[in-house]
């Protein structure tokens, strides 16, 4: 059995899909809604069922197993169906709602920031909104400015929302399970470059939770701290490998949760290594990276041998061209260069 588990390297998509299947079996209050979440809606009589299984195939097979009542294709109508998810959550369900790309938040932000985030507080704690929103983030496939953003910093700005960013199949499954069992609104940001990834710890077939609000030390080290989130954690791990070949011991912290942020794990690492490079694919202004930098500057200043350094995209929209897009994205080379500048 141990042997079999050790070889269980499944993709991110597989891990998420498995989590949702298990969650829906566990709790009949979970429903799933979104555009093309199954696909070919209403055409079962013509033999068309589950045509897509979600834009990223994360929800494949759900409609056959759980039926049309709980697995709902929606019109392209984010304000309508995300708002409906908020209402359904307030009235007793646990909806998992797909916002196809995070850039689409613009047409439904009111439902997320004015309703999902605030209902529990402004109603005096008497109504819970256990909605989970999942969305696709990240650059890297020439999708240009509106389909390549990360934007979790915007949502972390709002009290009342929890924001998690898995970095591999293992954390994806565990965070989905935690999010859908959580009583607060949670947004899960799925990075498109991770979808086919099989790296990281093996994914147990059983259900398990990765706690929301807890960072993970992905690689132990003593000379410098690299923090990553989502796909950037993979970049940090690659950079740490290269730094090791140059004789430096880098510690990699996978932040996993943007809100709540795990201050303690970051500070503990920095107090040990005395140097930090913060890697983030979200826009640099008023961002999660700025928050981590401020945390370290304010609470670990006396421990630092060098100022906190950020590796982020420039203050620019995401370009389309294959020549320009790589210049936007933080890469292993940029992280290594930044780390060496700090180390030397």
């Amino acid at each position: 059995m141990v042997q079999a588990q050790a070889t269980r390297q499944i993709t991110y998509i597989h891990a998420v899909n498995e989590a949702i299947h298990q969650l829906m079996e566990e709790d009949s209050k979970i429903i799933v809604m979104g555009e093309d979440i199954a696909g070919a809606a209403g055409r079962a009589d013509q033999g068309f069922v589950d045509a897509w299984g979600g834009p990223l195939r994360l929800t494949k097979g759900l409609i056959q197993k759980f039926g049309e009542e709980r697995v709902r294709d929606t019109p392209i109508s984010e304000a309508g169906f995300i708002g409906a998810g908020v209402g359904a959550a307030a009235a007793g369900l646990r909806p998992l709602v797909d916002m196809m790309y995070v850039g689409f938040y613009g047409v439904c932000a009111d439902q997320i920031t004015n309703n999902a985030a605030k209902i529990h507080y402004m109603f005096g704690g008497k109504v819970n909104v256990p909605i989970t929103i999942m969305t696709n983030i990240g650059a890297g496939v020439n999708s240009a400015a509106q389909h390549s953003e990360s934007l979790y910093s915007i949502f972390a700005h709002f009290p009342g929302l929890k924001c998690v960013v898995p970095s591999d199949p293992y954390t994806a499954k565990g965070l989905y399970i935690s999010a859908l069992r959580d009583n607060d609104p949670v947004i899960i940001f799925n990075h498109k470059m991770l979808m086919g990834l099989r790296a990281g710890p093996e994914v147990p077939e059983r259900m398990y939770e990765v706690p929301i609000g807890k960072a993970n030390v992905s690689r132990k080290g003593s000379d410098i701290t690299l923090t990553g989130v989502g796909y950037m954690t993979q970049i940090c791990l690659q950079a740490a490998e290269e730094l090791a070949s140059l004789g430096y011991s880098a510690e990699v912290i996978d932040l996993l949760s943007v809100s709540p942020m795990d201050d303690e794990t970051i500070l503990e690492s920095v107090k040990k290594t005395r140097k930090i490079v913060i890697v983030d694919e979200d826009y640099p202004r008023c961002s999660f990276a700025s928050d981590v930098s401020a945390l370290v500057a304010e609470q670990a200043f006396d421990y630092l041998d060098a100022p906190p350094t950020r590796v982020t995209p420039p203050h620019s929209s995401v370009p389309y061209s294959t020549v320009l897009e790589p210049l936007f994205i933080p890469s292993k080379e940029k992280v290594v260069a930044a780390a060496i500048a700090v180390l030397e």
């Binding site: 709980r70 304000a79 169906f81 708002g83 409906a84 209402g87 359904a88 009235a91 439902q111 004015n114």
Partner: peptide
Amino acid sequence: GSNIPVATGVALAAKVQ
């Protein structure tokens, strides 16, 4: 206008349950 989608979801919860 903010509550209109929420109310629609409340109705959805009744139907699903």
